[in-house]
Amino acid sequence: MSLPQPVPPSWKDLGKSSTDLLQKDYPFQGVALEVKTKTPSNVTFKVAGSRASNSSIIIGDLEAKWIDPRKRGITLTNAWTTANVLKTQIEAENLLAKGVKLDLVTSLAPNKGSKTAVLNAIYKQSGFHTRAAFDAFKPTLTLDTVVGRDGFLVGAEASYNVTEGRLNRYALAAGFNAPEYAVAVHALNDLKSFTASYYHRVSADIEAGAKAVYDPKLTNGGVSIEVGTKTYLDPAAFVKAKINNSGVLALGYTQSLRPGLKASVGIALDTQKLNEVDPAGPVHKVGLSFVFDS
């Protein structure tokens, strides 16, 4: 008798370990600040703001999130951005049946008169993870499914335009997850572009990963490759580094200054233009990020 299979990752989380390693904790685009607080009534407030290094505009949002204390799986999130966009998200998990999650996401921009409403339905169980999303104002139906067994993963995604009665796009993916490593291959954009990612936990203190992308529209017929690593200096600090085949080297350092306070610094260097000055903007980038979580 075979052992019960774990719930596989969702379509968007295939290759997530490699993506997080190569994308997160590199705050070299500017300055960012995030503050989180939680009230006794189970409401979490988050204020986030950022300013790009090449702009004087500050972008931010105020978010309030309420989780039902009676553990019925209901969560309500409201956000208001500096672009005057109101966002609401209502989640209900395991309310109708075990493994079923319903999620309604809406947004309203009064100044522009634009609005969105997307209803998501998620069902997951042993060896199976599927999602459906219906965009009411387009209208578009998107379906994706991932099945897994003994670490092997196979997934597919398709988007269908209900009004026009045609398939907008489709994609396939395959991968393998193990405790120390993970690999994933995606065929996207109607199987016209491809990505391959790899993640390896070398030891308790060292992680490594790589990602290759082939997209005729973005890579001019070639392949874009990026490799990176993460090293824990101690339980409260780690260093990250990555480089791509365009010669851009990025470094990141994150330090937990105290419980609830984290600071990160990032730098990106174009190694092919170390001594050049570009009139269009800075060749190299430096940024800071602070996170307060009480």
Rank of each mutant, 00 (worst) to 15 (best):
N78E: 01
A97R: 09
D68F: 01
N94D: 13
L119S: 09
A97P: 05
L96S: 01
A79G: 12
N120K: 10
N78M: 04
E93C: 05
I67R: 08
D61C: 03
N120H: 09
L96M: 02
G73D: 10
L62T: 05
L104T: 09
A83N: 06
L76M: 02
D103F: 14
A83T: 08
T88I: 09
A97V: 07
N120P: 06
R72W: 14
T82V: 08
N94Q: 05
V118T: 15
A64G: 15
I67A: 06
T82W: 12
K112E: 10
A92C: 07
T88M: 08
G113D: 04
L102R: 02
A83E: 11
T77W: 00
I74C: 07
I90Y: 12
P110K: 02
G113A: 07
K101S: 06
T75N: 00
R70N: 11
S114E: 06
A117L: 05
S114G: 06
T81V: 13
T81W: 14
D61V: 04
Q89L: 10
W66D: 03
L119Y: 15
N94W: 03
S107V: 05
E91W: 13
E93F: 02
W80G: 00
A121K: 10
K87A: 15
L108Q: 09
G73Y: 05
I67L: 06
V100L: 12
L108R: 11
G99T: 04
T116Y: 01
E63D: 03
E91G: 13
N84Q: 10
T77F: 00
V100W: 03
K98V: 09
L102N: 05
L76I: 10
L62Q: 04
S114I: 02
D61I: 06
E91F: 12
D103N: 15
G113E: 06
T81P: 12
G113S: 06
E93K: 12
A83M: 10
L95K: 07
K98I: 07
